Simulated assay, not measured.
Amino acid sequence: MLRIIRHSLCAAAVAGSAAAAAAPMSLQDYLALNGRAPDKHIAYGAAPSQFVELFRPAGKGPFPVVVLIHGGCWTVQFGGITQMRNMASSLAAQGIAVWNVEYRRYDEPGGGYPGMYQDVAAAVDRLKQEAAASQLDLTRVVAVGHSAGGHLAQWAASRHRLPSWSPAWVKDPLAIPQVISLGGLADLRLQAALIKSSCERDTEQLAGKPSAARPDVFLDTSPAEMLPAKIHTVLVHGEHDTVSPISTGEAYARRARAAGDTASVVLLPGGSHYDEVAATSPSWKIVSAEIRKALGL
């Protein structure tokens, strides 16, 4: 019998009454998030959105690494990398390096399929070049993504499963054994209606048009089609998340487990779709604890 592990029971004890008392964060609260400036701005391409921000902890490494991928419904409309600096600042203060990824979204020149996926792949693999100079420990890496970024983080950790015909395929991608999806929308096939209602995105905008050579557009764009990926996935959802409710995480976990992977589901008591990424939210105690656990801290 498939058992979905809900960490809400222990999470409620961690968050305590503060989570119950705090009002769930709104979109406007999310858009107001920010953090300290990054330590490095590193371009991996010529386009304005082809860069990463490195948040490096003080002191001597090697440091464990969070590959952080923002959401925003795959569009430039809802912010993204700036808001992730809030999480990145807190994690860096805890001794964790953060690789904050920007990429071309569907409504930017060259974005969508395949450019968005090629960007994420290039950004993640750029870590290999930076590791020695910035004392980054690539044996301790976790991908963390929010909303649309949850989809891309799960894809990034699974892309060693890409078919060789995919334009995003590369040889020997950076290995990422664990991924934490914060309100993610990662099953592009089964969640197409939810993605449409929550983000007003069509499959074609995210996965491209089918063709004779590529009749199934989900095979190289949806992490659910790349199972088993031999990774552990943690699917985190706010109690009041209406963009990506906990049922989406449960459905993905069932599919991952049926394929032979491991997955767990975490409920954030009192949290919305935006508390998931705010270091100022009571939910952060739970989220940061999951990140630290994934890194063996």
Rank of each mutant, 00 (worst) to 15 (best):
L2C: 12
L2Q: 15
R6S: 15
S8Q: 09
L9M: 13
C10W: 14
A11Q: 11
A15Q: 09
A19W: 04
A20C: 08
A21R: 14
A23W: 02
Y30A: 04
G35D: 06
R36P: 01
P38S: 13
D39F: 03
I42D: 02
A43D: 15
G45L: 05
G45T: 00
G45Q: 03
Q50H: 01
F51K: 12
V52E: 04
V52L: 06
F55C: 06
F55I: 11
R56V: 15
F63H: 12
V65Q: 05
I69V: 11
H70V: 01
H70N: 02
C73V: 03
G79V: 09
T82W: 10
N86E: 00
L91Y: 00
L91M: 05
A92G: 09
A93Y: 02
I96Y: 03
V101R: 07
E102V: 03
R104E: 14
R104V: 11
R104K: 13
D107Q: 03
P109R: 01
P109H: 00
Q118F: 08
V120Y: 01
V120I: 15
V120G: 02
K128W: 11
A131S: 13
A133F: 10
Q135H: 12
Q135F: 06
D137L: 02
D137V: 07
T139I: 12
R140K: 15
R140S: 05
V141E: 00
V142N: 02
V144R: 07
G145M: 02
G145E: 01
H146L: 01
A148R: 04
A148Q: 05
A148F: 08
G149T: 05
G149L: 05
G150H: 00
Q154V: 13
S158G: 11
S164N: 10
S164F: 13
W169M: 11
D172Q: 12
L174I: 14
I176D: 11
I176K: 08
P177M: 07
P177G: 08
Q178Y: 08
I180G: 08
I180N: 08
S181T: 15
L185C: 10
L188V: 11
L190T: 04
A193I: 06
S198N: 09
S198V: 13
C199E: 10
E200N: 15
Q205C: 06
Q205V: 01
G208N: 09
D216F: 12
D220V: 14
E225L: 11
L227F: 04
L227N: 00
P228F: 13
H232R: 15
I246M: 14
G249R: 10
G249T: 06
R254P: 03
A256C: 02
A256T: 02
R257P: 00
R257F: 02
A258F: 11
G260V: 02
G260Q: 06
G260I: 04
T262P: 05
T262M: 13
G270Y: 08
G271H: 07
D275R: 04
E276T: 08
E276S: 10
S281W: 04
V287F: 09
V287P: 14
S288C: 15
K293E: 11
A294I: 04
L295I: 00
